[in-house]
Design a binder for these strands. Sequence first.
DNA 1: AATGAATGAGCATTCATTCAT
DNA 2: TATGAATGAATGCTCATTCAT
Lengths: 201, 201, 201, 201
Amino acid sequence: MKSSDKHTSDKHSKIIKASTKVFAKKGFFNARISDIAKEAKVADGTIYLYFNNKLDILISVFEQEIGRLIVQVTALLEKEDDPRKMLEIFISKHLTEMKKNRNLAEVIQIELRQTNKLIRDYRNDKFSEYLNILSSIIRKGQQENIFRQDIMPGIAKRIIFGGLDEIARIWSLKLDTKYTVNEATKQMSDLYQFGILAPDD
Amino acid sequence: MKSSDKHTSDKHSKIIKASTKVFAKKGFFNARISDIAKEAKVADGTIYLYFNNKLDILISVFEQEIGRLIVQVTALLEKEDDPRKMLEIFISKHLTEMKKNRNLAEVIQIELRQTNKLIRDYRNDKFSEYLNILSSIIRKGQQENIFRQDIMPGIAKRIIFGGLDEIARIWSLKLDTKYTVNEATKQMSDLYQFGILAPDD
Amino acid sequence: MKSSDKHTSDKHSKIIKASTKVFAKKGFFNARISDIAKEAKVADGTIYLYFNNKLDILISVFEQEIGRLIVQVTALLEKEDDPRKMLEIFISKHLTEMKKNRNLAEVIQIELRQTNKLIRDYRNDKFSEYLNILSSIIRKGQQENIFRQDIMPGIAKRIIFGGLDEIARIWSLKLDTKYTVNEATKQMSDLYQFGILAPDD
Amino acid sequence: MKSSDKHTSDKHSKIIKASTKVFAKKGFFNARISDIAKEAKVADGTIYLYFNNKLDILISVFEQEIGRLIVQVTALLEKEDDPRKMLEIFISKHLTEMKKNRNLAEVIQIELRQTNKLIRDYRNDKFSEYLNILSSIIRKGQQENIFRQDIMPGIAKRIIFGGLDEIARIWSLKLDTKYTVNEATKQMSDLYQFGILAPDD
DNA sequence: AATGAATGAGCATTCATTCAT
DNA sequence: TATGAATGAATGCTCATTCAT
């Protein structure tokens, strides 16, 4: 269908989509612009009508995907008031999305470990926003005296994200695929809530 | 023969050392062989007497550094029998080394997210060995009924390593430097042992 | 039809004018069609309604500018009958125009040294016409026995134009700006008329 | 001199020679690095062991050729003391070299009209040195009261060079080839010495 | 073993030109 | 006529790797 609504935004999102796929498959440095162009069924030069350069594409992909995650997680969390459940929802949603969309998982991997090296002045606000959902949940739990007061939300959000990301990493490598999303969610949620120690009895 | 071996090993380790520094500074893809050669005060071609190619250097660096970590952590753990303390030692040692040696932290970051993409058949046994120290500690705790039986060591080791690695990542980016090694260790150790929930009382 | 013609000619001259400016500023090879389009406040594609390609624009600019020079110089020369004065007028006019319009000076520089390389079959009749004004003056002087008979007008016109063009070149580079148009005119006119030798006495 | 030095200088001069030829044939902007490499029977990358970039090659070619001219002209002038003869020698030598080596003539054309646009901070000392030979001759003539005192050497050197260069230009375009070097030299030398005016009676 | 000059495949980016609207 | 989004060929330069010494 060659309708005229297939225009600018169409090309843009086609390129983003193609880039996500290509970056995930080859990694940022091994991906060629012509690979992306080919995947997006667009001329090489067309890409530069929508993006400044290769790095700009990576950043755009990352921000778009994280942005989508933020929207979805936020929507889910609005329906819940218990911080314990909210934490579980965050974990579950993150793992679910990463399992569903391996490309996304890999782009996050790449972006987080590469971009900051390349551009020191890139602030990565979207990602901060995402992590701050986690720290908000923790603070809420602390205010309600459900979570321990001595947990530092700023560190905890990093620790938890790290755990999530490492699980996503091994999935994207097709290692340890024996664990399901539910199992992993259960394990993480349990570990972070109750700790590893056996209850005294 | 001994002197020859020694000589060889000298150059080899000089290159490894130089590579660690250069990879950490520039990242794997932006590091040039000539940078490494210069840093190691060796001719470009000499590097190919000791390594097959650039990727081979990265793997060697990674394995050597992880190997060193294994030796050190193992030594520390031998003196301790309480799984709770052992877990804390592992966390503390990892964070200490990463804070001390930013180069190492970055090489791990890069290696873990890049190499597997490049060579599907690379098994990375050293890294598995390192992670298995973690799962051994957990299993030991479970055998002694100190750790909960429903924790799956294979997932937990990943979750914990992920947390450690994310903390190291933000340090290597010089973000959130406000947290000291001790603080971070305390937070992680606490979180993993007792969980985030406030004790009933 | 008339209005259409007028419109066309408007756009045409707008593009010529814009091109002169852009070529002078950036040089032919570094000038982009989009620069010209922007300067002329016209769409990129519109340029191709009036010109075949980029080179065609350069040639048009050159011919138009040289054509304008021919008209002006001819008008000035008509009022004068003395070949000595006519020579001085030519020199003076050329330098005045080049000083006044640096863009023109540079376009001549570029055109004369580049175009012929690109299109071997381009005859450049306008430029020949311009130079022939010089040789006509010389021939007239010879016929009137004011100029020496052994001067070959075909070579002399080149020698004189070369001198004029070199002076224009250093002005366009903003070198040696200490010399005024009048000084330069005086020096050239003097040199070409009387030569460098001191008169016997 | 070491064999490696010899080798190096060999490659360097091979590239210079090839570049002179290619620039002359295609012009600077249309010359591809691979053209030069092919002409020099060298790999593309090798060129960058000896030159920083394409522009650097052009400048090097120019400076080398002008340098050679300076040496030759200086040698010829040392044997002569009469400023009139010296002027003629300069003119004759310049035209002879340009006729003999069309590549050189064209590289000068290109360099003089392009480089200064591209790099504002390039001082072009060699060329200044060459032109200053001309002004020195004029000053010498003035000191000996052979040349008129009101000639300004700084302008005169430009005027004369311009004439020489324009003659070289038309030769390099294969226009007006009917004039021989000797004829052109005679015409220029005559014109600059005695002027165009017929002697009184 | 060691060197480092030489190689040449590889790629991001530009921009003159086209053409559907 | 006019537009400007889209095209894709073209190329300067880099750098991992080789190899003659």
